[in-house]
Design a protein around this nucleic acid. Structure first.
Lengths: 218, 218, 218, 218
DNA sequence: GATGAATGAGCTTTCATTCAT
DNA sequence: AATGAATGAAAGCTCATTCAT
């Protein structure tokens, strides 16, 4: 077994426990010793794999977001047409966030930290995912516009808005103590925006379904 | 002049400088001494007015949000009908955020902190503003639904969504390094959602204007 | 009583205890906590007066050398002619070193540190004393040469050599575990060098006394 | 080839690289890993040959001083009379120090460490060389005294002084940033002391030469 | 014999908070 | 009321040394 497997595996192991501890306690309140204890290793060992606490924080975020992007990618590829690809993205996000409900506050801490630290890698990693989602959004929007499901709309602006809306709903959900079902909120949003964007034909077809969803709320 | 005027004034003075220092450096990296120096007072004096650094942080947020709520309230009262009240809220938000661009990261830090601290006052203060905006949103939505400008929609869900969307756009704006004009993004969002929510008559009337805004992007 | 008196007094107090602890244990093995304990103050208090452990080390050396220079200066001024000024310097050095026998190793550590640290202040402080002594030596040598007690000699070279010899004897004394009387060694050296430097007349006069000292050793 | 050859050779190899690293960085700032890297071996391997970092430090000093003693011994044996043996010692010292100028600070560190550590081997090794030089000095002094070149002088005291003076000049040279030529300083010192110690006949003979050297300085 | 992953004691420095003045 | 000197808990990080492979 090559050495790099061990190295990588151990790194991942540390990231896993760091994610747990950080999620539980928050970045600032977590001590390196706590993470070492959780991972059943010595404090010094962590520093064999990560230069600083901050780097470890970045690694945790990177691991999460990489997994998220992979899930989205896989689901997108499995979906056949543009509309179901959109559903795939929405479902991926909902499931990802719901399954990590307890870790959600850490995402906020990460964002806050990214805006403060001198290390540009933080904002870069954030924007990597944002750009991934925005590109996807733009591509799908273009398809739906060309195929005349959607009315004419600036793809970049729309994709940027959509990414922001997703984060905003997530934020509201977290700050409200997760008092509403995330999936319902995402569906509600999709109905609302669908009604605004669909062309007259599609709109005529889908209004009953979408309209009733709006009436129902979440 | 009663003593409490002095007390209150000095408190406000400290909060003002704390806001500057926190905004500049971030909550964790800011030292009480920095704030005292900025305010040209002794370190100990701060503790005559605020029990802890955390309390001072809360006071900064409270001052900002109180001012924001006041602005919204004033503008709303000046607006005559529901549609222009909606515009008033949007404009208040845009102006408030734009004029505090440099302080925006601190809002994220505040949210992140609120989710971690034992002190429930943080989340309570956040939700105070959220509820204020949601109530306004619900009331206006109800009005527009009854007056048949809007299609039937669950007011609470819609208002919650709208609040989330505002925060989400703000978040995207901050994380993107404020690379797009916030006001345009808010207008774009309003056009999109307007098209989805307006009743057939209003929609027929406004589609040209809203549609062209969607085409233009931000 | 003005504040700076307190400040300076406390600083001196800390330096005093730091000198004790450093002398006892050595610079590297001494912990800031040890010094704080010795001074009966909190660890943090030391950092109110000295930015780093290294600065405190410098302050200890500076205090010693300043005192030494003062002693030499006072004695020199009290001496009447060049020959007794030379005796004054010798006596000052002997007494200073003998009274600080236990602290001698720290001087070596200081020199060693000065050659390693990035902080140029260390070498500067060392050379301040060296230059003080060298200037004195040059001036006295010039006087004795002009008054024809001494044969013609390059004053700068001679003064530099003399300073080095003093340090060398001190070094030998410390490394030998202070097994010989420092004062005798300094006298022996003075006799030897006197015999080499005195002019024929003075030499004829003093040879019996100096020669017997050389025979006696130390 | 017997195993001990390998063992010894490897040990010497490690000492060589340790000497480089220690000289460059200083004993305290040097890490075992740095030495291992320089020697292109694993960190653990060093511990197969030296029990501690301190032992390795001692080995470096020992290697230097052993080489020095050997050089002196060889040169002394090649010299024919006492006076040229004295020159041989002086030249050995000058060449040794000059060729190791960059490593000189480490000697100071070694001396400083020797006075602090519990390990008596350090002071012992230092005194081994000192005694070697002192014995040589005493023997030569005795010879020159008996042959009536030198006036009567306590050999032990004189040899001790001479050793100290050599170290003192070296010290001054290092602390002055090696701003004067070491060889000139050693010659100057020899002239001065020669004039003090030579008997009247020899003195009459050599005064012109030695006197002019004193006038010239270094 | 050679290695380097693992370890944890140990240390400097920071800074929120207190309290005597 | 205002101050700032004093405090010490706290934590990130280092690195000599060990030992299983």
């Amino acid at each position: 077994m090559p050495a790099y497997v061990d190295k990588t595996a151990k790194q991942a192991e540390i990231v896993k426990h760091a994610a747990d501890v950080f999620s539980q306690t928050g970045y600032h309140a977590s001590k390196i010793q706590d993470i070492a204890t959780a991972a059943c290793i010595g404090k010094g060992t962590i520093y064999e794999y990560f230069r600083t606490k901050e780097q470890l924080f970045l690694a945790v975020y990177d691991a999460w977001m990489s997994e998220f992007e992979e899930i989205v990618q896989t689901r997108i590829e499995a979906a056949e047409d543009a509309l179901s690809k959109i559903d795939a993205i929405r479902d991926s996000a909902v499931e990802f966030y719901e399954s990590r409900a307890g870790q959600a506050p850490l995402l906020l801490e990460f964002w806050a930290h990214a805006l403060r630290t001198d290390n540009p890698a933080f904002l870069e990693r954030i924007n990597q995912t944002r750009n991934f989602l925005r590109s996807l959004g733009m591509k799908l929007t273009k398809e739906l516009t060309h195929s005349e499901w959607f009315r004419d709309v600036d793809e970049e602006a729309f994709a940027t808005l959509e990414t922001g809306i997703s984060d905003g709903i997530f934020l509201a959900w977290v700050l409200d103590g997760r008092s509403f079902p995330l999936s319902k909120a995402f569906t509600f949003r999709q109905s609302l925006i669908g009604l605004g964007l669909l062309n007259d034909d599609a709109r005529a077809l889908l209004t009953p379904k979408l309209g009733s969803k709006l009436k129902r709320g979440f």
